[in-house]
Nucleic acid binder design. Structure first.
Lengths: 108, 108
DNA sequence: AATATATATAATAATATAATTATATAAGAC
DNA sequence: GTCTTATATAATTATATTATTATATATATT
């Protein structure tokens, strides 16, 4: 299976992967689905910043979203060929994982 | 084997892959090593443009260079884990391959 | 209905990127 | 040495990216 039908699409995929914050987000989604508020807490950037990153990740099909009440949960799209190729070798980010465990969570 | 020791290095790798022209260059190097002048002719961008792309590809270790007289031949670095992971599924670019065949070549 | 919480979008500003042209360097030919 | 060819670097410009703040929307709670 080929990574993408054209270099235009493929370069777009790589552009989305070319930002460190988005790599961290993928690293967190690899553990389990996450809502925007938890990601905001772990990444320590503004909430709109997170939402914009999620939009880009969704645009190229790396993530799916699931709405539950006022929360939006994002998870990795296991149908994406490039993402699935990369994921088994994805590096860990111990600081983020630690902070995720310690985050109190925004759900009541 | 992990793709990179940190997200900093990995995002840098993806940044280099996030440009369509550089994906085309990798596609051409996949066929055989190429000198700057041949790449310039096939890609139809300026020669300094090609040199700058090659510099970025070299910086992250995607390509190696070999000097032969006044020519510099670039080839893919088969030691690079990410590149080697991607390469088997690399898309073809028939127009570039066609133009490479028809290019007269800069060697005398 | 009013308020609070979660998320998305718009506007903006700082920085990065990629192309070009101009110039420098280095090797080969005469 | 001078001229030509191949490549690299510097300077510049146009565009893209990513962060922020301000605001809008949508759901839940009271």
């Amino acid at each position: 299976m080929v990574l993408a039908p054209s270099f235009d699409g493929l370069s777009e995929d790589f552009k989305v992967l070319s930002d460190k914050t988005r790599l961290r987000i993928i690293g967190l989604l690899r553990l389990k689905e996450q809502c925007v508020c938890d990601l905001t807490e772990v990444l320590q950037i503004s909430q709109p910043g997170v939402s914009q990153h999620m939009r880009r990740l969704k645009q190229v099909g790396f993530v799916k979203e699931r709405k539950d009440g006022q929360w939006v949960y994002y998870s990795l799209n296991t149908e994406h060929p490039l993402l699935m190729l990369l994921l088994p070798q994805w590096p860990a980010h111990p600081e983020d994982e630690e902070r995720l465990l310690q985050s109190k969570g925004c759900r009541v």
